[in-house]
Design a protein around this nucleic acid. Sequence first.
DNA 1: GGCATTAATGCTCAAAAGGAGCATAATATG
DNA 2: CATATTATGCTCCTTTTGAGCATTAATGCC
Lengths: 302, 302
Amino acid sequence: MPGKLGPTPVEIELNAVIVAVRDNEPCILIDPAMALPSGPFETGHRTLEQGLRDWAEAKGGQRLGYVEQLYTFADKDRTTGHSRMVSIGYLALLRAAVLSADAVWSPWYHHLPWEDYRDDVPRITSKIIFPGLSEWKNASADPLVRRTRSQRVEIAFPKDKRLWNEELVLQRYELLWEAGLVAEAQPKKETAALGLPMAHDHRRILATAIARLRAKIKYRPVVFELMSDTFTLLQLQNTVEALAGLRLHKQNFRRLVNAQGLVEETGAYAAVTAGRPAKLFAFRRKVLMERAVAGTKLSRTS
Amino acid sequence: MPGKLGPTPVEIELNAVIVAVRDNEPCILIDPAMALPSGPFETGHRTLEQGLRDWAEAKGGQRLGYVEQLYTFADKDRTTGHSRMVSIGYLALLRAAVLSADAVWSPWYHHLPWEDYRDDVPRITSKIIFPGLSEWKNASADPLVRRTRSQRVEIAFPKDKRLWNEELVLQRYELLWEAGLVAEAQPKKETAALGLPMAHDHRRILATAIARLRAKIKYRPVVFELMSDTFTLLQLQNTVEALAGLRLHKQNFRRLVNAQGLVEETGAYAAVTAGRPAKLFAFRRKVLMERAVAGTKLSRTS
DNA sequence: GGCATTAATGCTCAAAAGGAGCATAATATG
DNA sequence: CATATTATGCTCCTTTTGAGCATTAATGCC
């Protein structure tokens, strides 16, 4: 290859989106500079994931529960001095949380307010996003570009809210970025003020994490990593709704949870708040072993 | 954190699992040393993916079609000299293929022969794998360990072939590795000879790629990246079957493809081989724009 | 106590999707 | 022409989903 310059000196940085749900609000750990917790990858670690776990434990005083690698970024602008910065994003789920002084739980919908459809469509959607994206679409002279943009917008932010696809978090963020509607964007508008900005490209990493999590809760019992040992079905549903940013049909949700054998009754009842007391359930950890659920869509022959 | 040594000098290596299907056999690109194509990440590149594309194009003379990041590995044993090697795995799909001299297409089932269930259960499964895993299971004195191993085996390699889950490629490889049944394993048995070994941990990366691809074909129209411009429905089915390592129900496969609006008739017919001539179809590229299909399993309220 | 309110739970019904297989159509070959 | 081979159309039945009605069990207020 012409212009070969040899291996680039590189530094590895681990970025973690650490999630917990408090009062039915999904929150992420950030520092006062609006940055995700991040640290260097040290020589002593056997694997990347162990590196992350050790570092998070030392810093946050918590043991990370569920951990999953998200994506490795190495864009050109991620540079420190003359060496290149490669960032490996992780998603981690946490139950309780005692925080060290320099960290805060920040509700993730503060950063991506357009993602919360639990109480109808967010107001900013029609007030800012639709006009903003429309303007962006028409800003191109090329009719082909306009058509493409139009289609992307319609998929990411459909007019008909029943077509809302809660998994397209990253696509939506990228669309808003391209349209200059978020503060991090390069050719940004003066008006770019959608959501609370974060350091560097951390809001993008957050979007990646939410997308992954929203996809995953559908076929893997990861929600339980966010629940306490016992919980009511409503609490469970509230947590799923918080993550998905959607309201779910109560009875069908219960049917699903039961049919999958995900929980078992503990015999106890929740301390009452109002209405009929709810049974307390516990996650059947056995299902983790019993099944390796994976969506089958292929109509195989028997 | 005690023992902190500061950022580790690191080198980035890109590893690509480049897939094409020839004569209904999924093949991967490897060099004579049984290694996946790999190259360093150069300073000149804007992003990792662009780095991979440039490098693959220069080396293979091909433009990569579909590219997807798989996983970033940085295990301790991946070391060159005193700097640490971080490997970023990619999956790429290719249609045709003119190869440079030092590369070969190797059928992936040569490396993972237990993954091909198209003609019934592979023979090695009952002849080598079942006894081997059984022995491994019983090798532990701890009854708890035995139980866990037993469950893992039953999920990965179920006795009842209708329970075969074609997506668990990585789990199966790891199981065989732990049991010392593959040549790459550390505490390997003399008999460890399942499948054609590959360099380093490349067979593991291949397993990751296959798992990802098998999962993806179910909800994204990626197969078409492997098809020529026009094809018969049987050819399409054969390709899917090759990837999934399964036989599918013909009529239902067609119903699915039609219902999803994935293809359109071209009006032409395939050059006959035997039997009734088949219509030639083309992929409806529009669906890529029309829909951003994502599996919905949450029963939302309307 | 009686009644409104709030949740939890049980059940039904219809529509959509998925699994299996029968029947027919259109070619090639001997 | 009979046979073999593949393509394609259609039916039937089972499961899964989507929606909503009805009942149960508490609390709070009069």
